[in-house]
Design a protein around this nucleic acid. Structure first.
Length: 570
RNA sequence: GGGCCUGUAGCUCAAUUGGUUAGAGCAGAGCGCUCAUAACGCUUUGGUUGGGGGUUCGAGUCCCUCCGGGCCUACCA
């Protein structure tokens, strides 16, 4: 048994997320966590909301709510959605927690003590009308290069030229449209990542088994231009973690907060502490996951995220950990994902284009989404959600292959033998062949899951389901029954045991359906089968079951067309 | 502009890292079955691996070049 710490990239607080954010972090981390638990490993599965930053403040203002209240509300929504998708986090924390405040301030203090924090005077755009400093991106104006009027202060969308907000012609606040902008001097803390670049590079170079996507992004940042740059870790905002040096005030930094990308990854640690708090457990119980001097030496730490998050997880957060000089657990494997597109374009929050998590759960059960999204996960390149592909995949895999197998077996059994596992006959060569095949396939399935190759794992699981139909078709108990009811009984008994096996093997991907299947068989979701041969004799003659209703209703053409229309956006 | 990724059957993806005849699923065609959600099984059609050039005994894989798609580019997160 191993101990596995799993974190999902923490979703930002400012709205309901679409399916694209689910597919690259929370969903795969849950599938992997469920699998690891099923294999008997001790798992700590952590997620949280990322609550700080300018967009959160603006979203709260737009909603007419104090930002703390807004975040609390949105946290509850996201927590409910996570539950709706059956995301089994041990704790779903908040980056605004007091635990994270203290830990973030602690790390900043340690980094400062190690000489890894620089105080830098910067010039930033200030908007008196808004009463705030504006991030580059929130300053808009006319591009000096191409004349595009909607250019942002960091880059012109039209000609892609990178800009400084002071270069814009007729600059205005993207928040209020105010034009009386001024440049003010303000002091900020920078994390001296450049001083840690060599250590980080050595560490990255050792990660030969990481996805190419992960290491290539990390190396790009390490090598680009003059190498890894220092990074501002503070902001002039009201909402956030006050800048402190450990528990001491930080002279000159009054009224400033840490930047979200400094405090957000630290929340992984803090959320684990929140978990301990929530369960009345001592600090030692969370520290054994995070402190290599307190029991975390044997922990394997796996992170899940979309590719946009890689630099922060592969470089900035490790810089924080390494720079602290304390024995915190460093990530062992970073699983990164490409993006999911929607019907030939991007998901768009602003245009209402694509399916959002709350809508998805309103129209279909979580397992439909879980299955299709993971079976088509963007592991090697961006992948595409289309309603046609979704409909075909769900109908074929879940309804026809798995659901129908369960229907045909249980209904045939009910009509010929009643709703109990029939006795009589015995397993022969046909069953032995299936056992051999499934033993091999289960090993392959496990190998893919161990490697976190979820797409391949899903394909193998599907092949395991198909094997049931092949077996049944060849054994043809409906024909055999007429001359040899005992032989037919043995076939049905074996098939019912296959259903039981499928409940166990399918649970990481479709936990809801796995529970329904187990419920119909009047059992709990079985333990992971270490021995397929034994597992396929677990249901003994006389064991009662209930013929389930249709497990997976098919998506009709009418539904598909209606949804295509509904989610097309502007 | 720079960097990285990507292009394989009508569609979605594989191909043990340069090694036999490039494989699966879906869609299509044919046959079988009738237990089942008009489901299942078997067979089968379909590829000049984006174009061109090169290295090699051998290239989907390596190199060059052109074309297409995508992402990142450090103050959105």
């Amino acid at each position: 048994m191993a101990r596995i710490l799993i974190t999902s990239a923490i979703p930002y607080i400012n709205g309901i997320k679409h399916l694209g954010t689910l597919v690259g972090s929370q969903l795969p981390s849950d599938v992997y966590a469920r699998y690891c638990r099923a294999r008997g490993h001790e798992v700590m599965h952590i997620c949280a909301t990322d609550e700080h930053g300018t967009p959160a403040e603006l979203a709260a203002a737009k909603a007419g709510m104090p930002v703390a209240e807004f975040c609390a509300m949105m946290w509850q929504k996201q927590a409910d959605l996570a539950q709706g998708f059956a995301l089994g986090f041990d704790h779903f924390g908040r980056s605004s927690s007091q635990r994270n405040h203290r830990l973030t301030q602690h790390f900043a203090g340690r980094l400062a003590d190690a000489g890894l924090i620089a105080e830098v005077d910067e010039k930033m755009v200030y908007s008196p009308a808004d009463g705030r400093f504006l991030p580059d991106r929130y300053v808009e104006g006319t591009c000096p290069n191409c004349g595009y009027e909607g250019a942002r202060g960091d880059q012109c969308e039209n000609c892609t030229k990178q800009l400084d907000p002071t270069e814009l012609i007729d600059p205005r606040s993207a928040v209020s449209g105010a034009t009386d902008l001024e440049v003010r001097e303000t002091k900020h803390l920078h994390l001296r990542q450049s001083a840690l670049a060599d250590q980080l590079e050595t560490w990255i170079d050792r990660q030969t088994d990481w996805p190419i996507l992960t290491t290539s992004i990390a190396k790009k940042w390490l090598k680009d231009g003059d190498g890894l740059r220092d990074r501002g870790i503070t902001r002039d905002l009201d909402w956030g973690i006050p800048v402190k040096r450990g528990d001491q005030d930080w002279p000159g930094m009054e009224g400033k907060v840490f930047y979200v990308w400094f405090d957000a990854p630290i929340e992984y640690i803090a959320a684990t502490a929140e978990w301990a708090d929530a369960h009345g457990r001592p600090d030692a119980d969370w520290e054994r996951w995070w402190r290599t001097d307190k029991g975390a030496k044997d922990v394997r730490y796996v992170q899940f995220m979309g590719k946009d998050n890689v630099p922060f997880h592969a470089l900035s957060f490790p810089a924080t950990i390494i720079g602290s000089g304390e024995p915190w657990k460093l990530v062992d494997y970073i699983k990164s994902f490409n993006f999911l597109n929607y019907q030939g374009g991007q998901f768009s929050t602003s245009k209402g284009r694509g399916v959002f998590q709350d809508q998805a759960l309103e129209i279909l059960p979580a397992d439909y989404w879980r299955w299709w999204l993971m079976a088509n996960a963007p592991e090697t390149s961006d992948s595409e959600f289309t309603w046609a592909a979704f409909q075909a995949g769900v109908n074929k895999d879940l309804a026809d292959v798995l659901g129908n197998f369960i229907s045909r077996v249980t209904k045939f059994c009910r009509s010929k033998f009643g709703e109990t596992v029939p006795k009589g006959g015995s397993y022969g060569t046909a069953e032995a062949e299936v056992i051999a095949e499934l033993t091999a396939r289960t090993a392959t399935y496990q190998a893919h899951m161990d490697a976190i190759e979820l797409r391949k794992a899903a394909a193998e699981l599907r092949a395991i389901w198909v094997a049931g139909n092949e077996y049944l078709q060849a054994a043809a108990p409906w024909a055999v029954f007429k001359t040899d009811p005992d032989a037919a009984a043995a076939t049905v008994r074996f098939a019912l045991n296959l259903i039981r096996l499928y409940a166990a093997l399918s649970a990481p991907f479709i936990p809801g359906a796995a529970a329904s299947i187990a419920g119909a068989l009047d059992i709990d979701v079985p333990d992971w089968p270490d021995d397929i041969n034994a597992a396929l004799s677990a249901l003994i003659p006389g064991h009662g079951f209930t013929t389930p209703e249709v497990l997976f209703a098919k998506i009709t053409d009418d539904q598909r067309e209606a949804w295509e229309e509904q989610f097309a956006g502007q």
